[in-house]
Nucleic acid binder design. Structure first.
Length: 266
DNA sequence: CGATTTTGACCCGCGC
DNA sequence: GCGCGGGTCAAAATCG
């Protein structure tokens, strides 16, 4: 029952609310390891134009995110490498709608990383094309969670989007996997970074903060935003992510992105 | 008319 | 073994 990563993150976010006050939008990254071929902390990649001190032991994300030009702030969560669930396979029971997928292989979940962003639109533009393949109600939340998959063939990157229940102005976006192809959009700014992205570094575009004051006459998701501002690259920092304010080791939270006990706790 | 979204059925692991 | 909850499929409906 406790697998509400989003909520957990909210919690974190909530703790660092001061952050929210300082920045138009914020995000929380959640990833776990396994791709740390880069010596850089994600913060550095975050804003390549200016060097930021490594986040390694930052207790408060805010410190590290003292960038005027970078509207995004982040914290790390964790990812579970646990074999979560796969799809179907096995034998058709008595139903007719079974898909004969004879792959008994457990789909190992790829590391996931998530971040929260203040935004009115649920689906943030990130330079890739996605096809929605599902939507489910989130427990303890009135907002649903949407599941997207990268439309590029052979690219199995998945993305999950849900609005925070405790803070409806924020959306939690969780990415799973890495793109193995360049972004279909984007002018041409993948010079040095593309290499990193291609090798194993998830690259995520920071959202611009002037998101909302664009216009909001309807509730359509998918909104084009000015690709210009900042680029943020996420790097897995082996361990020692900065979440919330506590030291946050990798033994509790890093297991499964967040057990959630948001409202049930008390 | 092809690509994408919608949406209920189905799957699966887990806790009881 | 059943029910719950998260996740996925796929047919029908929509969109562009």
């Amino acid at each position: 029952m406790e697998r509400n990563e989003g909520l957990q993150m909210e919690e974190v976010l909530g703790n660092s609310s001061f952050l929210a006050n300082s920045f138009p939008l914020q995000s929380i990254f959640d990833f776990s390891n396994e791709g740390d071929k880069f010596p850089l902390g994600f913060m550095e990649l975050f804003d390549i134009s200016q060097q930021v001190p490594p986040p390694l032991k930052t207790e408060s994300p805010a410190d590290a995110f003292n960038l005027p030009a970078t509207p995004n702030s982040s914290s790390v969560s964790s990812a579970s490498s646990e074999a979560v669930n796969d799809r179907k396979d096995g034998q058709p029971k008595t139903k007719k709608q079974l898909k004969p997928k004879k792959t008994n292989q457990k789909r190992q979940r790829e590391p996931r990383f998530a971040f929260m962003t203040k935004s009115e639109v649920d689906h943030l533009e990130d330079g890739y094309r996605w096809r929605k393949y599902g939507q489910k109600a989130v427990k303890n939340s009135t907002f649903p969670r949407s599941y997207y998959r990268c439309t590029s063939t052979s690219c199995n990157v998945k993305k999950r989007v849900e609005r925070s229940f405790t803070d409806p102005t924020t959306v939690v976006t969780t990415y799973e996997g890495q793109h193995n192809h360049p972004s279909p959009l984007l002018p041409r700014l993948n010079s040095g970074i593309s290499a990193g992205a291609a090798s194993g570094l998830p690259l995520q575009r920071a959202q611009s903060h002037f998101y909302h004051h664009h216009h909001h006459h309807h509730r359509h998701q998918q909104q084009q935003l000015p690709f210009s501002s900042t680029w943020s690259a996420l790097n897995f920092g082996h361990n020692g992510p900065t979440v919330g304010h506590s030291s946050f080791k990798d033994h509790g939270l890093l297991q499964d992105i967040i057990p959630s006990h948001m409202l049930k706790e008390e």
